[in-house]
Design a protein around this nucleic acid. Structure first.
Lengths: 150, 150
DNA sequence: CCCTAGTCAGGAATGATTCCTACATAGCAT
DNA sequence: ATGCTATGTAGGAATCATTCCTGACTAGGG
């Protein structure tokens, strides 16, 4: 979703995050897409508008936004971290072929709980559900070339 | 669970995995613990019995066992991969303080499904549920030293 | 308009994992 | 049992996402 710069600035101030050109651009790029980009993806996107942008700044900014609760870090496998501008409670559907991540909004999944016996004294703060499979185009590709990983 | 070497060998042969001293030791170490060790943890454990063991062999062996379905890779955050000798369907309860991973066996969680509308044409093969929180001792530690992350 | 804590850029460092390669060995066939 | 060959192993180098360091810059309160 495309956001007005002043809306981004308002969110930053609400979360006590200093407003800078770099941060605004990074957050805008993330809010505009639903593709859950990696830090480097964001770096590439933002560098087009701001060639001086450092990869380091992207990492630093994402950590600031993450700690402020403006951004969510999504980890899939042991690949690089990917980021999600949607911080409302939701879960993910992940393609094992191309790695794309789709959002799943489902109240039943949001309400999952452990019984007290299963919780083993943990103070459970949240949970995450990931569904894994193959998207339409990767299913097609796999039919064409059945591989050893099949 | 402590396994007899011949049981390990039988499992390997059943899954078309060549039997070697190194693999037997790595798999035995993993089967013996419920602590979901990392590749390097396993390297440290096994090196006591086999000082020539290479860290590389541990990585290679884990990839072989993973592909054979004898071992499961568990990824938490963007930390190093951790391994689970329990390949039956189950989920995890993870401490955000110390990183310990406990197994959760629950048929209701095992049966979770997406509606066809939510699945968006994906061929969904499986899912994973992680509960996050603080274990008893980390809750205690956090009460003692309330931090900015609190 | 000034000050200063918080940011930024860029290069170096880290650390898990993978790659490369020469030597060793499991396990099949003889 | 013996030899053969595809596979596995050791260890060092390479990779690559991420973090650390440091000196220059700037947002935003006073």
């Amino acid at each position: 979703m495309k956001l007005h710069p002043q809306e981004i600035e308002a969110r930053f101030r609400r979360h006590a995050v200093r407003v800078t050109r770099q941060r605004t651009a990074i957050y805008a790029a993330l809010a505009e897409t639903t593709s859950h980009p990696s830090a480097d993806d964001l770096y590439q996107m933002v560098k087009r508008q701001q060639p001086m942008m450092s990869r380091n700044t992207v990492y630093y900014t994402l950590s600031v936004l993450r700690d402020a609760g403006l951004v969510r870090e999504v980890n899939v496998g042991h690949d690089m971290a990917r980021y999600d501008g949607n911080v409302s409670m939701h879960h993910h559907l992940i393609c094992l072929g191309c790695g794309q991540i789709m959002d799943v909004m489902d109240d039943d999944l949001n309400r999952l709980q452990l019984s007290s016996g299963q919780a083993r004294g943990f103070d459970v703060l949240g949970h995450r559900v990931e569904f894994h499979g193959y998207c339409v185009s990767c299913r097609q590709a796999r039919r064409d070339v059945p591989s050893r990983r099949g």
